[in-house]
Amino acid sequence: MKVEIAGLKLKNPVMTASGTFGYGEEYSDYVDLNRLGGIVVKGLSLKPRPGNPPPRIMETSGGMLNAVGLQNVGVDVFIDEKLPFLRRYDVVVIANIYGESYKEYAQVAGKLSRAKGVHALEINVSCPNVKKGGLSFGSDPRAAAEVTRCVKAETHLPVIVKLTPNVTDIASIALSVENAGADAVSLINTITGMSIDLRARTPHLKNITGGLSGPAIKPVALRMVWQVAQKVSIPVIGIGGIMTAEDALEFMIAGAKAVQIGTASFINPCALVEIIDGIRHYLDENKIKNIKDIVGTLQT
């Protein structure tokens, strides 16, 4: 079950997706964190961010919209107050980082690289719910590459770039960050969408638009993972609507070396562990010795 991504040794290929697992503490009563392949914490910015005004979420068919707006405690409070909790566990911790400028991305990366207990960085260039930064960096290949270079210059840790699906050609962005030194890419972040209250003729979300997640987006995510995996030689981490071990395995067959589980945790806090057990069971049943042997085995 072990996989290695950019030098990171994961117990298994199943990680949490940023923004769906808090700082680990929130679900620690439900999930043995030691069992996880990795914990990707909620996106961190240089200063604390209050987030967007409510309502922030709305259920949709087979998923949900959110416009949380990267509410977070800020990188300093994370290091002082949240990281010590995570250090108690034998689990890979990946800090998701966000900035409003190249300089901010670099500063956050620098602080986290000096902190004990952070094993990798995931660059968020794909949040659709913030006015500055986020998606604007992720939808332009040159800007995405520049963010990657700025972060790489500040850190010795492996750098994963989390990509947005809200672009015409995701593979070209992936290639661009690979050339800029990214050690891996993770995809997809949420797909922008909206939902309307017919009676009031108002959007359900105060932010008007939000990011769609959940099983509704899985086919899109799978297609993009497959496209990107064809183009890049760095590891691809698959994200998007994974609810079961079967879903996770499909992503791996499409070319993902590992996966992240997000919205599934909201409706079943034990989903992560059930997916890990389900993959193990699949490997045993199909007499596959090494999980690596299924990565990118799609027959076309």
């Binding site: 923004g19 769906t20 808090g22 987030g51 967007n52 922030r56 259920e59 959110n66 949380v68 409706i267």
Partner: peptide, 17 residues
């Protein structure tokens, strides 16, 4: 009351000022 997704504080969806 507020709409919720996770119920345990992880999704930060049920924010109130």
């Amino acid at each position: 009351e507020e709409r919720m997704a996770c119920g345990v504080g992880a999704c930060v969806g049920c924010a109130v000022a």
